[in-house]
Structures are given as structure tokens and as C-alpha cells.
């Protein structure tokens, strides 16, 4: 299962690092990281990870724009995406559904279960 790769897009270096640890150790994922949306889009296109963990509050290009661009691109449209957000607004939830988001995880997340949450979301995602 070590071939499974996940891309974390989060501007906070501490959160990126903590998430990386949890996913690598608990979930045995290979982790790719991007600190902004543009970097995230580029890595997603060229590395084609098995899943993307996307923070909504990003500097510059925000998470929602990144999500839409990922879905518009034929090379990334089928990658399962898990959203990280402090609080999902009602209008955002509708967009998440339309854009076939695999799961929405509220920040701050529980580091001991995030790997299970992602695994569970991806096992039921129609994009897998």
C-alpha cells in the first residue's frame, strides 16, 4: 500500500508537517506537500497523487478556486479530494457536493484519526 500518495495543500508549515507525520506513520501514505494553491495544482497535475487533502483558507488562490480548477482539468478531475476547513458554509457544502468532494474534515482535526477518516472517505468515494 506504500505506493498510495496523497498531496497536502496547506499554507501553514506546522500543520503540513504534523499532517504529514500522521499520514505517513498511521496511514502509511507517501506524502507530497504544497504550500499554496498554484503549487498544489502543479503538483497534482504532474504527480497525479491518489488523493488530495486541501485546505480552504489559502493565501492568494483560495481553496475553493483550487478545487474548481482541479475538477476542470481532465488530468486531475478524478482525483479524490478531502477538504480541510475551519467551518464549511452552507453554500460551500453545495459546491463540495457538486464537485464530488470525498469528505470535509473540520479543523482542527484529530491527528490520531485523520488517516482513518481519509481512508474511510476514499473507500466510499465513487472516484476511487
Amino acid at each position: 500500500m506504500s505506493a498510495k500518495r496523497i498531496l497536502i495543500v496547506d499554507d501553514d508549515a506546522d500543520i503540513r508537517e504534523a499532517t504529514q507525520l500522521c499520514l505517513e506513520i498511521t496511514g502509511q501514505w507517501e506524502v507530497l506537500m504544497a504550500e499554496n494553491g498554484i503549487e498544489g495544482l502543479a503538483i497534482a497535475q504532474f504527480e497525479k497523487p491518489s488523493a488530495i487533502l486541501l485546505d480552504m483558507m489559502l493565501p492568494g488562490m483560495d481553496g475553493m478556486t483550487v478545487l474548481k480548477k482541479l475538477r476542470e482539468n481532465s488530468e486531475t478531475e478524478k482525483i479524490p479530494i478531502v477538504i480541510l476547513t475551519a467551518k464549511a458554509q452552507t453554500n460551500e457544502k453545495k459546491v463540495f457536493d457538486q464537485l464530488r468532494v470525498a469528505a470535509v474534515i473540520t479543523k482542527p482535526y484529530d491527528p490520531m484519526t485523520i488517516s482513518d477518516q481519509i481512508a474511510s472517505a476514499l473507500s466510499t468515494s465513487d472516484l476511487v
Binding site: D12, D14, I15, A18, M57, A86, K107, P108, Y109, P111
Partner: peptide, 17 residues
């Protein structure tokens, strides 16, 4: 404050978060 809320929560400092 956004960063602190996230980081403190992840590292188990719920009250701070």
C-alpha cells in the same frame, strides 16, 4: 489566530485552540 487555532488543536491543546 487562525493558525494558532489549527496548530494548537492538532497538538492537543484544545482550550488554546
Amino acid at each position: 489566530s487562525h493558525s494558532l487555532a489549527g496548530v494548537l488543536g492538532i497538538f492537543g491543546f484544545t482550550e488554546g485552540s
